[in-house]
Design a protein around this nucleic acid. Sequence first.
DNA 1: AAAATGCCCAACCGCCTTTGA
DNA 2: GTCAAAGGCGGTTGGGCATTT
Length: 355
Amino acid sequence: MKETSNLPIGKTKELGVQKACTEFSPNAAHLAREREREREEEEVLPPQKDLKLKQFIEKYGTGGNWIALPHKAGLKRCGKSCRLRWLNYLRPNIKHGEFSDDEDRIICSLFASIGSRWSIIAAQLPGRTDNDIKNYWNTKLKKKLMATMLPFSHTNLITQPLFQSSLQTASSPSPSTFYHSTLTHPKPILVPSNFLTNNKTTTETIINTSPHQLQVQESNLMGPIHHYQVKATSSPQVLGGDQPSCSSSDGSTSNNQFSYCTGFNNGTDQQMGFEGYFINNGVEEDHKSSILGDGFSVNYDQWSTERQNGLWGETQSDHQFTLEEFKQLVSSTPSNGCNNLFMDESKTQGKLMYY
DNA sequence: AAAATGCCCAACCGCCTTTGA
DNA sequence: GTCAAAGGCGGTTGGGCATTT
């Protein structure tokens, strides 16, 4: 990370802060005092503002009331701004500078596990702030991972999101899925999440348990991702309990290709597991449903449409399922409690996210 | 050398949820 | 139940800097 930590508070967006923060009181006397303080404030150089805030908090604490704090500290800041400045920059033990490989791994692993819960991720990285991690993820780490995967991609990879993930709830310990597809319009055949997580997510496992005849290439990627490219050489079948409702009518699946990533294995191959992979050309366009694991079915057309339109980024459609839509799609849940669709319970408004 | 461009990142915005009185 | 404040988040902005043209 670039060492820009000497930026004084509000240097870049101070006007915005001032604009956003309302006056504390509308009465004239108060406004006069405000103007007076504003004049005083003008004379305080930015680093001194930081110092002022820091010293005040170190001396008196936040008092559990950020709104009142700048008032008490004699700063013309809104409480939220002070809080942000304190949390992201001023508080002790804030770490600046490059992220280590270990930190990369932790971030990737947690992101794959719980999604963009930056504060939770930050809690695992002492000295790092959620904002810092978010920025790092958005500007560097995501690209780094993308670059890591590109050697395995075909030409149409770029517009697809790298992965989706979700918060795991305590009651549903299924690991999130780390999706990666090289396909233009991936047609998902999803395996029960315990398919691999209960086993070693190794190449051998996939080969041995897959209904396909697979040729697997294992990569020696840098970074935390264990990546395989799987090429199907036989007709696809759906894995899991009930009989699949999708198959290839012509059986011409010689060019079927799968691509998936395991989670971030941290050397164990088991930490995140792997829950799904995709197939193209393996399912007829007119198939209406696909079995997801043990009887977990979804209207295939809707599924794939959403995949293509909303989640795979190939159009700009921003549609997400509502809860009701989702319920309509899901005809049953797997008996083992493992499935490949996870509700992100941290999200509200009935929106569904795919994992 | 100067202008244009792209990248990085601290910080802001607006919205939402959580918490506590 | 209601309200205010705190806290959290994704998306975004814009200044600073490096690189390219």
